[in-house]
Design a protein around this nucleic acid. Structure first.
Lengths: 120, 120
DNA sequence: AGTACATTTGAACAAATATGCAAATGTTAT
DNA sequence: ATAACATTTGCATATTTGTTCAAATGTACT
């Protein structure tokens, strides 16, 4: 996931050294940025975003979830695994059924803010 | 006697019809979902997320921005175009320089919420 | 034991895309 | 007009990744 690629620094001269240093300060915690990017990326895919939206205030088994977003069980299960790993969905087992749901208020707010941005 | 039960079950049969319909209601506006996914996806790439973070409360030319995130001008310019199209950054021209910045409070809040999620 | 069903998982393919080089564009000077 | 510089853009490529099929796993029931 993390690339150890050597990135050639811009050969061009820096125009405003002070501003560059200030900007660098905002992105000094690389791991935090990579973690955030992972979450954004997960929500940046229609299938997964549909899953998260469909599970808001609901609790659905994989089969019904697949029906709701008009996809198939295998695809949904694959994506659920990614969402689970990032704690974007939680699940509850009951016999051979598995019920998924969401309950992260941070994510709900983030989605709402992105919705507001893209609506205006 | 041939049984006609070979159809993949989960795509046809639904366990809880009521819940499925409720879930479908949450994802009925497909275009809105696709628009949101586009924004999330843009923020879901480390290079672009770094750009957005670096430009918070700053205003940097492309060259300094590239230096700040330790990338090169071409890559940054490519990504800036995508961010511009989605109105995630704005820009101001001054002679041959182009200064980029961000000022969308929705995006700032969304980033903060995602940060909180991935920190806990 | 066996069957039926819900879910997960592995593998393979196809599509999307981030990046870097080189060339082009635009701007300000001399 | 020519040079120098900042930015953009076109192209090529290497990597990532979403989807599907098939097989495996897990569970309940007879």
């Amino acid at each position: 996931m993390i690339k150890d690629k050597i990135v050639p620094v811009c050969e061009v001269e820096i125009v405003d050294e002070k501003k560059v240093k200030a900007a660098k300060g905002k992105i000094e915690n690389l791991n935090a940025i990579l973690d955030m990017a992972d979450i954004f990326k997960l929500l940046g895919e229609p299938t997964r975003l549909k899953i998260v939206l469909a599970l808001m205030n609901s609790e659905l088994c994989v089969c019904d979830l697949a029906a709701a977003i008009e996809s198939n069980v295998s695809t949904v299960s694959h994506q659920l695994r990614l969402l689970r790993n990032a704690r974007l969905v939680k699940y509850r087992k009951d016999g051979k059924m598995v019920f998924y749901s969401t309950d992260d208020e941070h994510i709900n707010v983030a989605i709402e803010k992105i919705r507001e941005h893209s609506e205006e």
